[in-house]
């Protein structure tokens, strides 16, 4: 899927409270069935699945059938990539502004 190669898509997929909570749940509790995952949310299983599909499109999570259930899990690498991009830009600015501070305060 083309979308899964786009870091921007990953960030967009994470730019939502519900999706971040889903990522949080999956990262703490490991692979979860849709029934378990949806349990803590005040919305329908269909609505949760919709969010998961958006993240699947960004390569952040994937699902596998287990018996009659669907199990969702995190794609750790995509999450790591997304994290790195923000970290890099953010840290570069920290460093650059540190120099400006030293420059104007002396």
């Amino acid at each position: 899927m083309r979308a899964s190669h786009n870091t921007a898509t990953v960030f967009a997929a994470l730019g939502d409270e519900t999706r971040l909570r889903l990522v949080s749940r999956l990262s703490e509790a490991g692979p979860q069935s849709i029934v378990n995952l949806a349990a803590g949310f005040p919305m329908s299983r269909q609505a949760i699945t919709k969010h998961l599909r958006v993240m699947e499109g960004a390569g952040l999570v994937r699902c596998t059938p287990r018996g009659r259930e669907t199990v969702w899990r995190l794609e750790q690498k995509r999450l790591a990539d997304a994290r790195r991009y923000l970290q890099i830009i953010s840290a570069q600015w920290d460093e650059t502004l540190g120099r400006l501070k030293a420059f104007v305060e002396t």
Binding site: R83, I88, A91
Partner: peptide, 30 residues
């Protein structure tokens, strides 16, 4: 995206120490 990948490579050594934005966020909501 190709440019962003270069950014990863250029910063390979330093990134491990950097602020973990998503992890922080996850910690703050859970």
């Amino acid at each position: 995206l190709a440019r962003r990948v270069q950014a990863f490579a250029a910063n390979e050594q330093g990134w491990a120490m950097m602020v973990k934005v998503i992890e922080k966020y996850i910690a703050s909501v859970s």
